[in-house]
Nucleic acid binder design. Structure first.
Lengths: 237, 237
DNA sequence: CGCCGCATTGACGTTCGTCAAGTCTAGTGG
DNA sequence: CCACTAGACTTGACGAACGTCAATGCGGCG
């Protein structure tokens, strides 16, 4: 076994508790080591894939944070999500064999490239991988339901509260602080995701600071009163 | 072959050009005839499944229109989609073995019940079915991206225009008119889907009538100037 | 025939977007 | 190393779009 093959093996990956191999037995895990064809580095501001490009692979994020965005032919665009280590992107490309959104690295990043025909072939042989692929897609559908609820029925402060709680929770699952986070995206990108203008994001953040709910120094956010944020998202609880 | 088995066979279904069997060969089609365990009738206002219920099956709509909705613990709820003949619902339940939204019939309806373990088993044996299941899920993800774009960046009139065009296009694919449609949902349900209040939906519809873009008689809508609607959704084109 | 849910319309208020000015920061090149 | 610059962020004043509240009309169902 060369160092190279060790390097791209899921069975050795420190993200295996979060990523593709979750819930697989040791034996299944070794069977899916062939999933990752290669790794790919993506520099800050560069795209992993773009709207219109041919779909070939799903990507598991190893390091870095991405945004995905869709655009209508006129200038309008919408950030559809922010993705971090262990999350899978590219699912949009399956239906028409071409991607329908852009994936842009918000910082230097690295992904595992998983050719989709390999995923499908292995899924036929490893039922728990098949189930896992279905779960990943279903999870994305459910996540988007939540975003629709947010965009369709929440005020600016509620949206931002939900956003911050979601980010810090996902970071915490990756071993980072429960209360402190470094934003990898601009106010404008946050606004695009939340259906707000950047000025509204900025003003709302400032209001949170005034209310001693968070402390903000540019991209660095410390959540002082998480319960206040939770009450905004869900007044009942 | 009893009449009963004929009745639930995909290979005999008049929706096979729209539904699960799309793109399958005759031989593959006969292999998936076992997919549908049974049919189920759902009366107007009744639910096919509810948030929290155990997930067992996907459902292919044979007749009728459904809405799906998510709710937060406080009263807020959001219609996440309207589904009609040939479309598949229940995908939200895969990830956690429980449904996370409600599916409500907007008129008396009938669905084909497809137990998910059967779908997975057959998918392993029939690659084109496997591919098709993946496409259905990916299509739902892409659809939701479009809704996010709508909710995040469009004005009320643009949202309503996009909604009407989308509905009439899907109805046309099912053999109905290109320009006339019967709404199966209330103004409030449309508003919930579009992130608007029912009064705004009503006012915006009235404005379309004043501008000779549509004719409206309660639930009955006739699209007089589809290009005007298209220009609202996409000013560039 | 009467009732109730659905829809329309108007008056008014709130929230958020727009426009503009000014500050801060990080990165670049002298 | 520092000055410069472009991009990112903040803040204020104002206006537009949409929500809220309320009155009224309409139509289908029992």
């Amino acid at each position: 076994m060369t160092p190279q093959t060790i390097k791209v093996a899921c069975s050795n990956c420190n993200l295996r508790e979060l990523c593709m191999p979750v819930g697989l037995t040791r034996e299944e895990l070794s069977r899916i080591d062939g999933l990752v064809a290669t790794r790919r580095k993506v520099k800050r501001r560069e795209t992993l894939f773009r709207n219109g490009e041919r779909f070939t692979s799903l990507y598991a994020i190893r390091t870095g944070v991405f945004k995905t965005r869709v655009a209508s032919e006129d200038g309008r665009d919408q950030v559809t999500g922010f993705q971090m280590a262990g999350e899978i992107i590219g699912l949009d490309g399956i239906v028409n064999d071409h991607h329908t959104c852009d994936a842009v690295a918000l910082e230097d990043a690295e992904v595992c490239v998983m050719p989709f025909d390999r995923i499908e072939a292995l899924s036929r042989e490893v039922p728990s991988l098949q189930r896992h692929v279905h779960q990943i897609m279903s999870r994305e559908i459910v996540r988007e339901h939540g975003v629709m609820l947010l965009l369709g029925s929440m005020r600016a402060d509620e949206r931002l509260a939900a956003f911050l709680l979601n980010l810090v929770e996902r970071l915490h699952a990756r071993g980072f602080s429960k209360s402190e986070l470094m934003l990898r995206m601009t106010r404008e990108e946050i606004g695009s995701y939340l259906g707000l203008k950047l000025e509204t994001v900025s003003r709302t953040l400032s209001k949170f600071v005034d209310d001693h709910i968070v402390e903000v120094e540019m991209r660095h956010v410390r959540i002082v009163d998480p319960d206040a944020l939770r009450r905004m998202v869900n007044p009942a609880a």
